[in-house]
């Protein structure tokens, strides 16, 4: 084993990669992480500027998604055309 791969092994044992850290960030939104994963993620985020950014942006995306999933107060972007409305009205009337 080369020196490089020994170092890599040690590093991977101790630290999460950004790949795994961001996966845990996505997962954490829906499920509680194990204590070990939670700690490793916390440690990673303390040191990794880019993953902290990912965390912020990810939650920003989720907030937006929740906003336009809200059926009581929707921000409607797409409307039915008159043609579509007529077609659907006919369908309802004929039943």
């Amino acid at each position: 084993m080369s020196n490089n791969s020994v170092l890599k092994k040690i590093k991977n044992g101790m630290m999460l990669s950004c790949d795994t850290a961001t996966l845990l960030i996505s997962k954490r939104e829906f499920e509680k992480l194990s204590i070990i994963d939670g700690l490793r993620l916390k440690m990673h985020l303390t040191n990794c500027n880019l993953c902290r950014r990912f965390e912020e942006q990810s939650s920003e995306i989720s907030t937006h998604i929740k906003d336009f999933s809200n059926i009581e107060n929707p921000k409607t972007l797409h409307n039915l055309s008159e043609e579509q409305k007529n077609k659907l009205s006919k369908l309802i009337d004929n039943k």
Partner: peptide, 27 residues
């Protein structure tokens, strides 16, 4: 049912469109 399209048509369509990325499938 006569009021479905005018009351909820756009809301339902918008909801479907945002999840299906297609006007044909939403319709």
């Amino acid at each position: 049912p006569k009021l479905w399209i005018s009351n909820y048509g756009d809301l339902l369509y918008n909801y479907a469109y945002s999840r299906l990325s297609s006007s044909t499938i939403a319709e």
